[in-house]
Every structure is written in structure tokens, then in C-alpha cells.
Design a protein around this nucleic acid. Structure first.
Lengths: 332, 332
DNA sequence: TCCATGCTTGACAACGTTGTCAGGGCGAGT
DNA sequence: ACTCGCCCTGACAACGTTGTCAAGCATGGA
């Protein structure tokens, strides 16, 4: 900047004014500065700029999601990134992999970097550790799960309603032996979907059978093993509720391998590409990921723009998409 | 930091030493400082730190990929992110959407932020605009496409070989009317796959028929329209090479809708989840995305660690995965 | 006892930028 | 001609941190 100033024959402050497009610079001086900037290849240093500025904004937000290679996390990231780009804001992305220690470690790194905002899909049981940073002005929006121990905006779906929707649908098609396959119940979303499953069984007065509940499933391979186990049991289920997309993937594959894809009902949670062209097409409870992303972005930027209204917990609608696999009836 | 120093009864420099874990601080002073840091909730300011440091590293790298919601881009991002986390490096992620102007704009923003490294899936025809920043020490690795106008590391697959692999496979199964469905040929990867298609036809002395080539397809919906068009033509293809995963998705859906999924051979490019349980299972040319990600990460961090060997262009192997759809034979 | 050595600590300036404030020039109004 | 006010510009300090250098102190050897 000093060099630019020297070449243009002005002070560094004037260069600063031109770079920041402040109005009070005469056109010919501004032009001289711009020429000097171009010939020297000068690059404005955003870090130094934010350090000095009164309003300490880095123009960076972070997205802490569970797994960036999962379509759901990726969609949320995409929504944030598109909106951020319009405002010249950079997006730092991280996967948490359901690891609370990792969440805290990554958040710490981001706070050190003074990101302006955080979109968080929490892996921790409580986010109270964030309180000092929230007080210091860190804008935070939770997604997919509700905040615990702090009071911030959140955008999620009603997982219990989704679980009930899927389970009731299977019960309505005559099933009495409906299996639940999901992730670790310590994870809020898994617990909610399971609660919906239980609630639906209770509403129809169908006894909950512990042998039909398998949790802690994270990958498609985990799910495949679980389905094999259920099918090999003495009294296998006639229907399966796969409460995660990776679990649904494993279930689809296993039912097909075992040749019972048309004999066992299956409802997945979370839609994915080509679910409609599987054989049979997969019935799912769909979360509107675009709506979730849009709402997250809207809350995040509203807060960054100074919205100080009380935190909101927004629930995005769920929808049962009937495609075939969930409408299979039980034997005889 | 000043407050911490005052509370601990030491100078700011000593606080700095403790924060940076420099060895020459007596244990009791260090403890006093750490206590003060904790009680005041002090957060080290990485921006100010890098501003002052001699080695101007921000501990941030950027991934500029085509579409973060696409499984391929997402996998590359994931690989970078995992490796970066181990080194306390943050990853900024952006989608370019094949838009050259967007690429330049985003790169400019990142340079202003002084990122240490760039992983770039170029959308521009030439990346010569990066030269001044490369000279200034910006580490860059291209992925999926080779750099043009600059000399940097790159990691890609041999798209022409992939196109030839797919096309030859279809020809070997007796097809003579093989359609090519792909993206705009100005995109390097699309052009390479098409070149492979042409080369394979020529090698078998099958005439190239322009009516069987549809390009500029970006989405599954685009591909669906194209397949409908081909099937409605007077002399439809007996086999289709879908040279992108979104295109394969549209082709699968359309062939199924039209009831010819078992009568028309189909080979896709790029594997995806559940391709093995489609009906028929989808034959694809698979890129080893994990290997690509690993290689990108390895090149990037080697350069950041000071490797100054000549730039390398690494080609990752392609593999034809035979699953059924590509082995369908032409009628009679 | 004295000095050299090593260890710990602090004062100061500097990184690249912008907020603050003051000064110079010029046009308009009296 | 003089003053007032506006417009443009620059000098200086400061943002939060660390590199440099020098000084204080204890230790150990002569």
C-alpha cells in the first residue's frame, strides 16, 4: 500500500480511500491510484483491514455439519455458500462426524479466526461452551437439531412426527411387526424418530418388540448387517422403518440381495436421487432440504444484519412420499 | 491480551509466549497466565497473529469445486477437510458452477483473505490470471482438470480413456448405434470423454453419427429430455454412454419410464450410491474419488511444507464396473 | 570473589490497514 | 477584500499480535 501511494504520489490514507470506494476522492487522483494498484499488482489485505476497522467483521462464516459427503449436509452447505457469495462472504466448512470433542476443537479454531457466524449441526449434548462467544457477538444458527444450553435460532424438522408418519403408514398397510433401524439414540434426531415410532405403535395399540429395534447404525454396511440379522431371526419383521438415509441404502441393498425386496415393506427417512427408480421405488419421509437451507440462510444473515428479536425454533414440514416400497402388504 | 498480562502480572510478550507454547517460560508464570486466560475468557486473535508473524500463514486453504452438492465435489472437499483438520487448517469451500467469472471473483476474495492454498477445479479456459498470486507464494493444485496457462500440480483421470473404455465395452457387446450424452464440450472433462468415444468408434470402424451425440447436458432433467428425443427418433440408439453422473441419472429414469431399461444398454461415468441395486444394475466407469482426494491432499500439503519439485500431473486410474446395464445386447 | 553463561522476562517497534482530526485550497456570500 | 464553509488530502495513532534486542538474575567454574 505504501508502494502504491508512492507511485501514485499520494498518501496511504488516500489509497485506502480509493480501495474502499469512499466518495470523497477526486476522480483524477482515484484514477491515478487505480493505475498504480494495477501496475504493482497490489492486493488489499482483508486481515489487516478488519483488524483496524471498528466493526470487526471478517466476512467469513462457518458451517459445521455432520458429514459433508452426505447429501443432506452438502445441501445445507450449498445453500449457505450461494447466499454468502452474494455478500462476498467466505464459508468455512467442516464435518463433525458426531464427535463432540471435534466440534469443540473446530469451534475453538473458528473463534480464533473470528468468523462472524456459525451454522452448527450440533454433535455435543450441550452447546453451553459457546456462551462466552455468543456474548462476544458470534452469530449462531443450529440446524437439524435444537440448541441445548444456549438460546439461538434453529431450523429443523419434527423428527417424531416423521417417525410417526412412517410407522403409521406401515401399520395402516396391515403390518404388526415393524422394525426400527436407526442411529445411536443419544443423537437427538435419532431419538426423535424413534419416539415417533413408539408413539405410532402405542396409538395403534401394537406392542413394542425390543427385538425389532436396532440402533447405533451409522453406515450402510451397519444397516446391511442389521437387516440380515432381522431376516434370519425366528420371527422376522414384515416391514422396516429405516430412519436414516445411509440405513435405508443398506436396507434396500440387503432386501434385494435376499430376494425379499417385494415382500418386505420399507420406508426410509430422507429422500435421495434415484429413490424413485429403485425396484420397488422407495417410499420415504422427505425433509425439504432446500427449505431448510433457505431458512438457515435467512436466519443467519438476518442476525448478521442486526436482528435482535428473540431466537426462533423453526420447524420445516415433512412429507411422506409414497412410491411403492412402503405400500407392500404383509404376507397372507 | 493486555488485560491477561495485567491480571497475571506479566508483560504482553510473556502472554504471547505462553499462548504460543514457547519453551522459555517458567512453569509457575505459565500457569499464572493460563489461569488469567481462563478467567478472562481471552481468545487468541489469529488474524493479528498472522499479520505480525514473519511467515505469513493464515492456516486457511480453499476448495473451489464445481458443485458442492454433487457427490464428486463433496468427496474431494471431504478429503481436504479431514487432512486439513489434522493440521488445524480451516477450509473455505465454494461452488463455481462452470462460471469463469465466478471463479475469478471468488479467487480474488480468497487472495484478499490471504489463504495459503487453493484446490481448484477450473471453470476458466486459462488460469493465467493466477500467475501473480502464484509468484507471491499461493500454493495451487488443480483437480479433475489440468491447469491451462499456469504450471501447477494437478490430479485428474484420463477422461478419454474412460470414454473409450465405456464405448468399446458397448461395441464389444454388439452395439453399432451408441449414443453419447454429455456436457458442453468446452468443458475439458466433457471433451475428453467425447474424444474417447470418437476414438473407440474409429478403432472399431463404426461411423460416428452426429444424431446420436447430444451435448450441453447439465442436469438429470436435461438428460431425460435428450433420451426421450433419441428414443423418439426414427432410428434410436441401442446403447447409451452417459458421460456424467447427473446425465446417467436422467437416462436411468427415462429408460425405466419408457419401459426399455432392459432393452437399451447404458454405461454411466462416475459411480454413485445404489447404482448396484438399480434394475438393471448400472454399469459405470468409476473414478476412484478417494484416491483423487488423497492425492490432492498429498500434493497440497507437500507444497505447503515447502516441496519445490517441478509440478506434477497425476492421473488416477479408471475402472469399468460391469453390473448389468452395460452388458445388455442389441435386439436380434 | 568475580565473571561468563544460560535462562527468563520485558520494552519497543512493526505487520497492513483505517479512524480521527487538522490543514490547505477554493468558491460563494457580504 | 474578507470570512465562512465545503471538499479533498495527509499525518498520526491504533487495532492485537510477535520479532528483536537487551537486561536481570541465578548458577557454576576459575
Amino acid at each position: 500500500m505504501r508502494d502504491v501511494a508512492a507511485l501514485a504520489g499520494v498518501s496511504v490514507k488516500t489509497v485506502s480511500r480509493v480501495v474502499n470506494q469512499e466518495p470523497s476522492v477526486s476522480p483524477d487522483v482515484a484514477q491515478r491510484v487505480r493505475t498504480a494498484v494495477a501496475t504493482l499488482g497490489y492486493r488489499h489485505h482483508l486481515g489487516a483491514s478488519t483488524l483496524r476497522r471498528t466493526e470487526q467483521r471478517t466476512g467469513t462464516v462457518a458451517a459445521l455439519l455432520q458429514d459433508l459427503s452426505n447429501a443432506y449436509s452438502a445441501s445445507v452447505l450449498r445453500a449457505i455458500e450461494v447466499a454468502a457469495h452474494e455478500r462476498d462472504i467466505a464459508v468455512v466448512a467442516s464435518s463433525l462426524d458426531e464427535d463432540p470433542a471435534r466440534e469443540r476443537q473446530i469451534v475453538e479454531g473458528l473463534v480464533r479466526r473470528r468468523v462472524d457466524g456459525l451454522v452448527l449441526m450440533p454433535a455435543t449434548a450441550s452447546q453451553a461452551y459457546l456462551q462466552p462467544d455468543l456474548d462476544a457477538g458470534l452469530v449462531t444458527v443450529c440446524v437439524d437439531r435444537h440448541p441445548q444450553g444456549i438460546s439461538v435460532d434453529s431450523v429443523a424438522v419434527d423428527g417424531a412426527r416423521g417417525g410417526a408418519l412412517a410407522t403409521t403408514h406401515l401399520l395402516d398397510h396391515g403390518h404388526r411387526r415393524v422394525a426400527f433401524l436407526g442411529d445411536d439414540l443419544r443423537i437427538e434426531t435419532a431419538a426423535a424418530r424413534y419416539a415417533g415410532y413408539e408413539r405410532a405403535l402405542a396409538a395403534r395399540e401394537v406392542a413394542l418388540e425390543p427385538g425389532l429395534v436396532v440402533t447405533g447404525l451409522r453406515s450402510a454396511a451397519d444397516a446391511a448387517r442389521a437387516v440380515h440379522g432381522l431376516l434370519d431371526s425366528t420371527d422376522p419383521p414384515t416391514a422396516i422403518f429405516a430412519a436414516r438415509n445411509a440405513v435405508a441404502e443398506g436396507a434396500v441393498r440387503t432386501l434385494r440381495e435376499r430376494g425379499v425386496a417385494h415382500a418386505t415393506a420399507l420406508v426410509g427417512f430422507d429422500d435421495f436421487a434415484l429413490a424413485d427408480v429403485l425396484d420397488p421405488p422407495l417410499t420415504v419421509v422427505r425433509q425439504d432440504v432446500d427449505a431448510i437451507g433457505a431458512e438457515v440462510v435467512s436466519r443467519l444473515f438476518a442476525r448478521l444484519d442486526g436482528d435482535t428479536s428473540p431466537p426462533r425454533a423453526v420447524d420445516i414440514d415433512l412429507e411422506l412420499v409414497r412410491r411403492g416400497s412402503g405400500e407392500i402388504r404383509p404376507p397372507h
